[in-house]
């Protein structure tokens, strides 16, 4: 149906946008969203490769599951940190958090 390279280019786009977002966003939650974007791009690559090249197609999808699980765990801890930080510093803009100790 759709050749592998088209999926790869789609995943590259998402990956690049994710990196751009992570670098550019001032808000930590914005960075977290960009990070999730990168992980999703990786997922697409996993599944695309497993469908087209690997002898046993299940491997790619299994890894995609693990990536989703870890991304969910990472999002939970990340947002918990964001909440704790917001409670202390009343702001979550990255360039305003530059003091290690108050």
């Amino acid at each position: 149906m759709i050749p592998l390279t088209h999926y790869l280019i789609f995943a590259n786009f998402l990956f690049v946008i994710g990196i751009f977002g992570a670098l550019v966003r001032r808000n930590i939650i914005g960075i977290l969203i960009a990070l999730e974007l990168i992980l999703n791009a990786v997922n697409v690559n996993f599944v695309a490769f497993s469908q087209n090249t690997s002898p046993d197609p299940a491997t790619g999808q299994i890894f995609a599951f693990f990536v989703i699980a870890i991304a969910a765990a990472e999002a939970t801890v990340g947002l918990a940190i964001v909440l704790a930080l917001f409670r202390v510093r009343k702001t979550i803009l990255t360039d305003e958090i530059h003091l290690l100790k108050w």
Binding site: L4, T5, I9, F49, Q51, N52, T53
Partner: peptide
């Protein structure tokens, strides 16, 4: 991703 020749299986999709 375009240049390299990936080992595409025959029953790919």
């Amino acid at each position: 991703s375009v240049k390299t020749r990936w080992p595409i299986q025959e029953n790919a999709g």
